[in-house]
Nucleic acid binder design. Sequence first.
DNA 1: TATAAAAGGATAATATTAGTCCTATTAAGG
DNA 2: CCTTAATAGGACTAATATTATCCTTTTATA
Lengths: 139, 139
Amino acid sequence: MMALTRKAEYGIRGMLYLARQPGGQIAMIGDIASAMEMPRTFLAKIFQDLAKKGLIKSERGTGGGFVLARLPEQITLCEIVEAIEGPIMPNQCLMGEGMCSFQKTCPVHPVWRRLQKVTRGILEEVTLKTLAAQKVDLP
Amino acid sequence: MMALTRKAEYGIRGMLYLARQPGGQIAMIGDIASAMEMPRTFLAKIFQDLAKKGLIKSERGTGGGFVLARLPEQITLCEIVEAIEGPIMPNQCLMGEGMCSFQKTCPVHPVWRRLQKVTRGILEEVTLKTLAAQKVDLP
DNA sequence: TATAAAAGGATAATATTAGTCCTATTAAGG
DNA sequence: CCTTAATAGGACTAATATTATCCTTTTATA
């Protein structure tokens, strides 16, 4: 439970690829997809979204492709996840008035709110730079 | 994203009702469902699961119904959620070997692991007793 | 033995996920 | 200008998960 979708997983992987491009070089969807083992057309859709949300920039035509819209240290994991999946929301109730008839009396409410806050906190601390720099090769 | 399903929501509400039963009195599914505004047959299924998982006990026949299997202070929100939704798992990768081809090289992995740990921590701290005792009536 | 409760199994409607495919648009290069 | 190479956008689909409902069976009580 509480799992990310493939979409988010792919989006993160794709942006990580961009963050690792030497000199912030432009990269094509086909290359990214095959390098990171993702379905090409699906990734294209996801990148379209990310471009609309302003996390990456796209260029069309020959020599086109994608680059990060900001420096890797200025893009957090939280932003990417929320751009793709929508706001982090352990429980529908947190969405606003009228969603939950127990809003005022539900004792679990504060727990979800805390969980939401802590989750965002963790994801906000992690930038693409940190991730890209990581040399993970555990035994 | 990262949202609970109705099933978990209902399961929690139902168990909260049991925790609030004076003297740990037995309660019938119909009463619980109508008191907490949940679809009766659906709740029945959920309670069936919870009984199998050993969180509640059921009695059949006249005078039958459900009670908590343990004291409210010995049942955590984490247990209920995991009983219904399965283990808390921000990312499929965390499920075990063979699930993720990037396990050894994925720099995001440790973040999910941390998130998982913190989430469980928060939910483990909350018991049914705490929740049941809560007098929430915010402005 | 009738009644009241949960257990179990089958089924269904709807939503979400995880894509694919085709056409249009845009840019570069010859 | 025309071809080629890239993304953008829209429509569509298959598989799976969610959110239930209904019917029959089992179990316990009075």
